[in-house]
């Protein structure tokens, strides 16, 4: 097991595991987003999906343990790495400026430069999100009374704090994965002139899809609030 400890304490090994867990989490995002899109199909479809999912007890336990594990490892390593990276510079530059050419929009956003902070925002969003949907904290008894998952989602998403946090969180998540996905491939050693450009663009597209996809729910629900509200 010595080698495992060595790996997890080396910069390359840590990044490798960051990449692995990141890819797994991206896969989860795809499944999660696909499920959520059923919200647009209608209450029956969404509720059916939610009930079916919740009936798979065994699978859920395994999935949740895996997800939780991946999150924890991803976060702990991020903290470890960032502390090391911060210490490595020691004194910051009075003036710093990128030499990368491919930086038009990205020059402002520069997702790769803010992975730790975008990750931290996503974590905050995640905690709120789990509190809302999984543990139904801070809603008192108001959610317990609602039976349909679809309706529950509606209540949560129409909350004005949620509108703000969920929208921001989703967009930051999009930014995070737009670099994270391609970066994971690089950290795992996948780099080839034939495929790398494709991975790069797919990663950016994935970021947009994730960002817009997840942000669409609070935005659309809050827009439909006045129209749909009785």
């Amino acid at each position: 097991m010595n080698w495992l400890i060595t790996t997890l304490s080396s910069t390359v090994g840590r990044k490798f595991v960051m990449g692995l867990t990141g890819l797994f989490l991206c896969f989860f995002l795809v499944v999660h987003l696909a499920g959520n899109l059923l919200l647009y199909v209608g209450p029956e479809a969404y509720d059916h999906y939610a009930h079916t999912l919740h009936e798979q007890k065994g699978f859920l336990v395994v999935a949740e343990v895996l997800l939780f594990g991946a999150f924890i490892v991803h976060i702990l390593l991020a903290i470890k790495l960032s502390r090391g990276n911060y210490a490595a510079r020691q004194i910051s530059y009075a003036k710093a400026s990128s030499k990368k050419e491919s930086r038009l929009v990205a020059n402002v956003v520069a997702p790769e430069a803010w992975m730790f902070w975008s990750g931290a925002v996503v974590l905050g969003f995640l905690i709120l999100h789990l509190g809302d949907f999984k543990f139904e904290l801070w809603w008192g008894t108001s959610l317990q009374a609602i039976d349909s998952p679809y309706d529950k989602a509606g209540v949560i998403l129409r909350n004005s704090l949620r509108l703000f946090v969920y929208t921001l969180g989703s967009i930051v998540l999009g930014v995070h994965v737009s670099h994270g996905l391609a970066s994971a491939f690089q950290s795992l050693g996948v780099n080839h002139p034939k495929y790398t450009p494709c991975i790069h663009w797919c990663s950016i597209a994935f970021g947009w899809i994730v960002g817009i996809g997840f942000a669409s729910f609070p935005v659309i629900w809050s827009l439909t609030e006045s129209a749909a509200a009785p």
Binding site: S10, V12, G13, F16, N85, S98, K100, Q186, G189, N191
Partner: peptide, 30 residues
């Protein structure tokens, strides 16, 4: 520090060393 794949190194390198070598290193390491 660790490589977080920002690729600023490649842009600054006077000898045009590509970050594809870092991927090879990662592969070799694991």
């Amino acid at each position: 520090g660790a490589c977080t794949n920002t690729y600023e190194c490649e842009a600054a390198c006077p000898a045009a060393i590509s970050v594809s070598h870092i991927a090879r290193l990662n592969r070799e390491y694991m």
